[in-house]
Design a protein around this nucleic acid. Sequence first.
RNA 1: GCCCUUGUAGUUCAAUGGACAGAACGGGAGCCUUCUAAGCUCUUAAUGCAGGUUCGAUUCCUGCCGAGGGCACCA
Length: 601
Amino acid sequence: MITMSIKESVLSSIEQEIVGFFVDHGVKSPTVVLERPADFEHGDISTSVALKCAKTLGKDPYTLAQDVASHISKKQLQHIHKVEAVKPGFVNIFFDQAFFEKILGEILKLKTDFGNNTSLKGQKWVIEHTSPNPNKAMHLGHLRNNLVGMSLVRTLSCNGATVVSDAIDNNRGIAIAKLMWGFLAHMRKNENVPIEIEYWNSHSEQWFSPKELGLLPDMFITKCYISGELDFKGNPVVENKIRELVARWEAKEEDVWNLWSHMLAYAYEGMERTLSRLGNHWDKIWHEHEHYQKGKDFVEKGLGKGVFKRLEDGAVLTDLSHYNLSDTILLKNDGTSLYITQDIALTALKKDFYNAEKLLWVIGPEQSLAMKQLFAVCEQLGIGLLEDFMHVSYGYVGLKGDNGSFTKMSSREGTVVLIDDVIDAARDKILQRFVFEGKEENDELRDLSEKMALAAVKFSILKPDRTQDIVFDTDQSIETTGDSGVYVLYSYVRTQSILRKGAGKKLTKTNSLARPGQEGNLVKLLMFFPDMVKRAKEDLSAHHIAQYLLEVCSAFNTWYAKETILDESEQQYHKLAITEAVGVVIKNGLSILGIETIEQI
RNA sequence: GCCCUUGUAGUUCAAUGGACAGAACGGGAGCCUUCUAAGCUCUUAAUGCAGGUUCGAUUCCUGCCGAGGGCACCA
């Protein structure tokens, strides 16, 4: 049983009074928003309702605000210390010390649960993210997809939803055929080995393994794919052979399937290494080869319903004029399916399998139109309603070009930045600093450096708004100072360190906050963590959490610098409680971002 | 050509239509016999341009300029 928090209950009584005030004055249904002011000088909570209703009532906003303020004051609501009307027409409300005392108590009592709410209780959301393309090592684009997806799962879950995550494994088609060809043709131990699948099946030892080349599996796969791709583009004979491979695979030729599984095993091994490092998790993986043929049935169904049309050459086209979208081909003139054909089938499968309120896809912005078309087609086919589906797009991760401009990563130009390389670089930078400080390099220190590196990398990707393009510079983005994940971790460690030292102290519980100033502002800030969790849900972006954590850390560190917490004073108990509450909020916030806290540096 | 996204300090990022546009990095000046200075304090500097709506616009609308992406048988 979740009871209303002290903040919710006080705010709702204020809201009721204000609504009542405006209703009495003839405003039909006033919307009263109580929000956190830019500065706590302007109250602990504030509303601009007087400014908004002034015109309707034909009154001066400031006088109206004064009326509202005195109305609330007269009601003598619990925990309200002061209400004032300010300049253009804001009503600013200040709470009493006992209120903040209770807030602090709630944080310390709720601990891990502080910040969570039940707004999505009873709802099931499915999030597809990080769908692997098993032909290349994972780069920063995949990283953003993964971090956005994973943080979204946690964000929605903190808002009370039951969240399931899945991915589609694009394990068949021309790309995998290129991969198989690249391996067959370019990983032979010598030129005399025939480039033949049949021969490979009986003489696989005549081809290199990643290990034999001293390569990690994902790099091995990347090499195979790139050479396969080059051959495909540069040699029509090879192109035909590769296309033939797809057909042979579809005909379930055993030799081809053996090679196919062999390549996929390397691909999965490579991805698994990177993904487990990131803490990735899927509840289910859909393998393309299991459902790719089912899409055609839906196309037939659409033709039957008359929502699609068959072109003269036999291809099938959508009619999306009702959706104000451009039409798209659903079936090639040779009768074979396209990406969207399979997506229709998979969406239907997912809709059926999960019975969920919402299906979300974390996919890059270049798919925006394709996603809209997919959703529209699904609605036409009765698979679901437009509002059941959502494309969660995210900005590109680019690099800084020579002229200082935003440049996309390009595998052709060799500018792709791999996830593992970035984490390694950050880890080494952190480790070096430890060693420079005279620490002994051992497993424990390496482990600590890895955790801090992950915090730095994840934080730098999750700090900006999900939809914005970001420029990634390994040196600049993987900051361990300033607004960084390491800064947040360090602040957390600081709270824990103080708590450890304070554990043996004699504490006298006082009944009021030490001073309403600095400590007070810190508690006020902590009070708004639950609001940030809601905002992250509304915008489907955890960056609000990251930005907020920086604010909390900054406030805490400022306080820490000025104030001795373990000062043996009467206020020591209280200051420790605040320190603990800061720790709780940082830990909970980082947890949404998928960043593990550490107790000691 | 049409559609979508986007344009904030030198740089990288913030800002549910609100109260002096916030940080960080960089530049400049300081703070460690004191709970670990990966920290703290001060300082420097920005809303592409032109209109409109509004009591109030970085935010909404229109036009222009710049950047990125997409536009039917690729995935």
